[in-house]
Design a protein around this nucleic acid. Structure first.
Length: 780
DNA sequence: GTTTAGGATTCG
């Protein structure tokens, strides 16, 4: 909602603003400058009556004076409100009010020469995306008095563990579950929302309203809601919340540190500093106590047998029959599985047919059923949608079990929040999607060979496009050499009689390998001291975290220039204090996907939850002077599922302060190597270490595989945290060697090996290492 | 005046 009426309760008006906005001085209001993240602050010195322009648009003019620069002649500036905002503002703006405006357009003021005010005026309208904050001085009470005597209605909020049936209360909560508003069988829209707060008690609310906008605009689990005047009653022995007369809600993004911008349909609402605190506390609590899903699934990442939420843009739609409806959507990524194309007559399809054809390799067809049809019909082409609990089902055409494709269906009903939500263009996920879509080079995705206007009329041909599996001839090698192809093959009996060091090309079969438990092949390697070590297990990390949680966060280290801090206490299962420090860039906390955080006092479970949302997590503890890293048996940095460790022997950890140099870079990437370097850490690399027993008919030799990712086409760093990669690795090894198969049936491997000598006590031994060899791409 | 839904997937 673009107009915010606020009362100054505590401190400066600016504290209610989104943190990304910066104040712009009147003298810097110049044409050609970017004012996207700026706001202008002034006091209303004069207001004119509401008028209608020639084209029927409402217009409302006021003069704002930049009081902090009032000696300058141009500190007075004309403000033009246009359209709906003109009408709305004319009702609520008074002389003497303080007003903050963001999202304005700057234009040359035609009257500057006559009125002597600023040479530009600000145009403010909903169309321009403007937001204004009005701090009214209508009451004669001074700011210092208001601190002890609130003038705004004082709302009391009931913790969820203190609710009683038969009451009407005001609540705050983090969204644990929600059904995006849907059309009920009665006369209203319905939304079911389960919220929870720090008392760990949840409340399911059934909200009805004939006006879609009056229901809370929840887009994600973890969003924070504020409900006013919700009725509490008992149903089937359980407490529930229901809408009652005067129900109103505010919804906020649940990301800790994000701008606090209420989503609401009401024009007037109260909002105080204290409430900002409540929201931030709930956000931080929710971040570690709710199962907030990780990065959104893109079409390219869809797996069959899955329900998922899809954020996408609607580019086509068609009525099928009474109980189903077709949506054609895209998110800019190509579905990695063949997806079904629902046959539909071109004439029945609504949308830009040229665009639909152009994007045919990037769009997927979704059939929505039953209760979703009515809502689907009302969707506008081009709008951004989030489709909740969409089913990706693997299917095969009849008699063709070897060919499969994915069907996208939104089944009837609203179980598990199944439904369709329209996202506003201001939604951060939509902004990100839009800029991604804009950046695409569509030519890349246009498969020239399948150009066929037929597809618009009949799409059944896409079923008969099976992936052809070429059975690899036994005579071909399952490995590929990445260099030295001119070298000839040397037999093992020759190699075994030669002195080291030498290099050979060999052709052999893999009789067996170690370790058989493949996850044991992953080790950590220090390239400085050449040491190899086991990857610490989760228990080690738990132990170190428990140990460090005994050190309480030092409040003097909170909210420094380069990071913001949030602190809270837990009581269950034990008392702990957790502090999260959000590293800033350009004095702002970035969106979670780009934000590095430092965590004190967290458990492993909590830290892992943070890694799903934030760019990186550094576990730390307080000292007197600064934050410091934990013992190096714990990861110094966690990114996604990867834990980065440092070498105990070669690292000289510095205090955390040094990190701010990275934060000041133009585009901090938080590359593990850079983070390590600045913190004085010698990072350990994940490697595969295996021993292959090879035979070639003339002899047998053991060769080591020491590899970061080339051999299996899998990064060693990701294997331990990915079942999928472990399975892929297992499948690769099974295809190379299997105790169940006779040696004759095993495939050939072509490899490069190098021989070298090692001193084993007093004896010298010749060893062999595989290099410049990879498994052929089509083996798995 | 006060229904609708009251969380808990799978068919098409």
């Amino acid at each position: 909602m673009p107009i915010h009426m606020l009362k100054i309760i505590n401190g400066a008006p600016e504290t209610a603003l989104p943190s990304h906005l910066q104040r712009v001085d009147s003298k810097y209001l110049q044409l050609g400058c970017d004012h996207a993240n700026k706001y202008f602050k002034g006091t209303v010195t004069l207001s004119y009556p509401l008028i209608k322009l020639g084209n029927g648009t409402d217009s409302f003019k006021i003069i704002l004076q930049d009081m902090d620069n009032s000696c300058s002649r141009t500190s007075s500036i004309n403000i033009l409100f246009l359209g709906k905002m003109a009408k709305d503002c004319a009702k609520v703006v008074h002389q003497g009010d303080t007003m903050l405006i963001s999202g304005f357009n700057l234009a040359t003021s035609p009257s500057a020469s006559e009125d002597g005010r600023h040479c530009c005026h600000l145009e403010v309208s909903e169309e321009a995306g403007s937001t204004i904050y009005i701090y009214t001085k209508s009451s004669p009470i001074t700011a210092s008095e208001t601190a002890s005597m609130p003038v705004a209605p004082k709302y009391m909020y009931t913790p969820l563990n203190r609710l009683k049936g038969g009451t009407t209360v005001n609540l705050y909560g983090a969204v644990k579950f929600f059904k995006s508003p849907y059309i009920s069988k009665g006369t209203d829209y319905c939304s079911v929302v389960t919220i929870v707060d720090q008392s760990n008690v949840k409340l399911t609310c059934t909200l009805f309203n004939g006006n879609l906008d009056a229901l809370p605009k929840i887009y994600k689990i973890g969003d924070i809601v504020r409900f006013h005047r919700i009725k509490i009653r008992e149903y089937n022995g359980q407490i529930q919340g229901v809408t009652s007369i005067g129900f109103a809600s505010l919804t906020f993004d649940g990301t800790p540190g994000a701008a606090i911008i209420p989503r609401t349909s009401s024009k007037l609402y109260t909002f105080t500093d204290e409430e900002q605190k409540t929201i931030e506390e709930l956000r931080v609590w929710g971040a570690s106590n709710l199962s907030i899903s990780g990065p959104a699934v893109k079409l390219s990442g869809v797996q069959p047998k899955l329900y998922f939420d899809l954020t996408c843009q609607l580019i086509g739609k068609a009525e099928m029959d009474g109980s189903s409806f077709l949506l054609k959507v895209w998110d800019g990524t190509e579905c990695s599985y063949q997806s079904w194309k629902v046959p539909v007559e071109s004439s029945d399809l609504e949308g830009d047919k040229v665009l639909i054809h152009k994007l045919r390799n990037l769009t997927v067809d979704i059939l929505v059923y039953d209760n979703h049809v009515q809502l689907a019909k009302s969707l506008k082409i081009g709008s951004f949608l989030r489709i909740y609990s969409l089913r990706a089902k693997q299917a095969s055409p009849e008699n063709q079990a070897d060919v499969s494709y994915i069907e996208f269906r939104l089944h009837g009903g609203t179980c598990y929040g199944r439904g369709i939500g329209v996202l506003p263009e201001s939604n951060p996920d939509v902004k990100e999607l839009k800029s991604f879509l804009d950046s695409l080079d569509l030519a890349e995705h246009q498969n020239v060979e399948t150009v066929s206007s037929m597809e618009l009329h009949s799409t059944s041909d896409s079923f008969s496009n099976p992936v052809i599996y070429l059975e690899r001839c036994q005579q071909l090698s399952v490995t590929v050499l990445t260099d030295h192809q001119d070298l000839n093959v040397t037999a093992f009996n020759t190699i075994l009689n030669n002195h080291a060091p030498q290099q050979y090309r060999i052709r052999a079969k893999l009789r067996t390998f170690k370790p058989q438990k493949l996850y044991q092949s992953i080790k950590l390697y220090c390239s400085k001291c050449n040491s190899l070590q086991e990857v610490p297990d989760g228990d080690d990390f738990d132990f170190i975290l428990q140990d460090s949680a005994a050190t309480l966060p030092n409040p003097e280290l909170h909210n420094k220039l380069w990071y913001d801090s949030a602190v809270w206490n837990t009581e269950h299962p034990e008392q702990r204090t957790i502090a999260v420090h959000f590293v800033k860039h350009n004095e702002m906390v970035q969106e979670p996907g780009k934000c590095l955080i430092m965590v004190e006092g967290g458990t492993q479970k909590e830290i892992l939850k943070f890694t799903r949302r934030f760019k990186g997590v550094i576990p730390v503890r307080s000292t007197q002077e600064d934050l410091e890293l934990l013992d190096l048996s714990a990861p110094f940095l966690l990114q996604g599922k990867i834990r980065h460790y440092g070498c105990k022997q070669c690292s000289k950890p510095k205090t955390i302060k040094s990190l701010h140099f990275l934060a000041e870079e133009e585009h901090p990437s938080w590359e593990p190597s850079e983070v390590a370097q600045i913190l004085g850490i010698k990072p350990l690399q994940y490697v595969f270490v295996m021993e292959f027993t090879l035979v070639d008919g003339t002899g047998e030799l053991d060769a080591y595989l020491f590899d970061y990712e080339k051999f299996f086409h899998i990064p060693a760093s990701e294997v331990l945290s990915s079942d999928l990669l472990q399975k892929k690795m297992e499948a690769t090894m099974n295809s190379l060697s299997s105790p169940k198969r006779k040696i004759d049936d095993l495939p050939w491997l072509e490899c490069f090996i190098r021989s070298y000598t090692v001193r084993d006590g007093t004896e010298q031994r010749v060893c062999y290492q595989i290099f410049d060899t990879t498994v052929a791409e089509d083996v798995v």
